[in-house]
Design a protein around this nucleic acid. Sequence first.
DNA 1: CCTGTTCATTGATCTGGGTCAATAAAGAAA
DNA 2: TTTCTTTATTGACCCAGATCAATGAACAGG
Lengths: 198, 198
Amino acid sequence: MKPAKFMFENIHQYFLQFLPNLSARAWEPLTELLVVKSYKKGEIISDLGAVNKWVSFIEKGAVIAFDLSDRKKTVYEFFFEHQFTGDYESFLTSRPANYGIEALEDCELYHLHFNSLQKLYERFPEYERIGRLIAEAQFLRVTQKNAKLMGEKPEERYLNLIKEREELIQRVPQYYVASYLGVTPEALSRIRKRLVSK
Amino acid sequence: MKPAKFMFENIHQYFLQFLPNLSARAWEPLTELLVVKSYKKGEIISDLGAVNKWVSFIEKGAVIAFDLSDRKKTVYEFFFEHQFTGDYESFLTSRPANYGIEALEDCELYHLHFNSLQKLYERFPEYERIGRLIAEAQFLRVTQKNAKLMGEKPEERYLNLIKEREELIQRVPQYYVASYLGVTPEALSRIRKRLVSK
DNA sequence: CCTGTTCATTGATCTGGGTCAATAAAGAAA
DNA sequence: TTTCTTTATTGACCCAGATCAATGAACAGG
C-alpha cells in the first residue's frame, strides 16, 4: 500500500478539478471518512436491488454498471481509474439500485458513505458547491450520452466509441461493448466486419 | 397580470419542494432578478447555436426543446407549466446551445440570468444547496430517460408515454411525439394502428 | 499440454422501422 | 362555406439488427 501521504493524491486532484481552491481544512476530514477496499476481477462491488449508500472513487482498475432486464446482463456504463462510480441514482433517492457494479479488472476503490457525505455538506459549504458541480457534470455526461443514443445508429455509435474511447475497446470484452452500444454481440461482429471491408 | 404578491407563487413552491425551509431573506432577492416575458405559440424562446445565458420557469404554457440534426427538427424534450426549461447544458458550460426552445402554446416565462444565479450562489449558501438538488434531479431525469431509450423498443416507449404522460399525448402534435420517441411519423402511425388491433 | 468453457464469427430467416410517394383527414384562413 | 396548408395514414420496397443454431477461436484450469 502507498504511504498515507500520497494515498489520496488522485481523489484530491479529482476534487481540485471542480474546486481549485478547496481548503486543506475541508479536505482532510474527507480522507478520514474514506473506506479503502480491493476487489478481484469479476467480484460484485455493489448489488442491484439493494439501496446503495456509497459512492466510490476508482483508484485503480475498471468496473461496469449493469442491469439485468430480460434476465441478461445489460451494460449501462464502464468506469475506469480516477473516476467516481456507483449507482448515483439509488444513492440520491434511497431507492433500490437499478444497477449492479462489478469489477472488470482487479480494483482498488475508496468508498464514501451517504451519511459521511451529508456530514460534509453540513460542515463545509465548499462540499455543497463541489456536490453541485459534480451533479452538474454527471447531468452533462448523461445528457450527451442521450443525444448520441437518439441521434446515432449502432454503427455510428461504434465508430465514435473507437474515436473517443479507444482504450475502452482494448480493455473490455466485445460482448460488453455490444451490450453498451445497445446491440447483440452478433450484430457488433457484423458491424465490425462491414467496417473492415470499407 | 397577477398582483405582484401572488405572481411568483408557483416558482416559490417549486423551490420549496427542494428546500422546504428556504428563508424569506434568500427568497425575496430572487424575485427581483426574474425577467417576466410572454411568447406566442410557435415563437422561438431560445436560439440554437448561441450561448444560452438563461434558465426559464414556465408559469403558463408548454415548450419543446429541439435540435436540427439532419436538417429536420428533432424533439429532445417537452416542458410544461411549473417546470424549468432552457438548454441547461449550454447554460452550465457556456458553450453554444445544442437545443432551441420554442413555444408549443402561448407561454408566460420567468427568466433568470446566469450572472444573477451566480450572485445568488455567492450571497446565499441556501441556493448552492438548491442548485445541487436541482442538478441532481435533472441528472435523475436524464438517467431515467436514458435507461428507457436503451431498454425499450419504440412501441414500448409509446405505451409508457401514454401511461406516464397521458396529457402530453393530448397537447402535442403526433409528429413531435414521433420525433421524441425516436421514430418517423409514419412509424408512429403504424405503431398506433398495430396497438388498436390488439 | 490437453480440455472444457467462454467468447467471437458466420449463416439463415424474420421483422420492425426507414424511405419515398400518394392520399386522406383535420385545421386555419379567407 | 370553400380553399389552402398542415398533419396523419397507408402502401410498396429495402435494410439493419434480432433470433436461433452451428462452428471457430481464445483462454483458463488442471
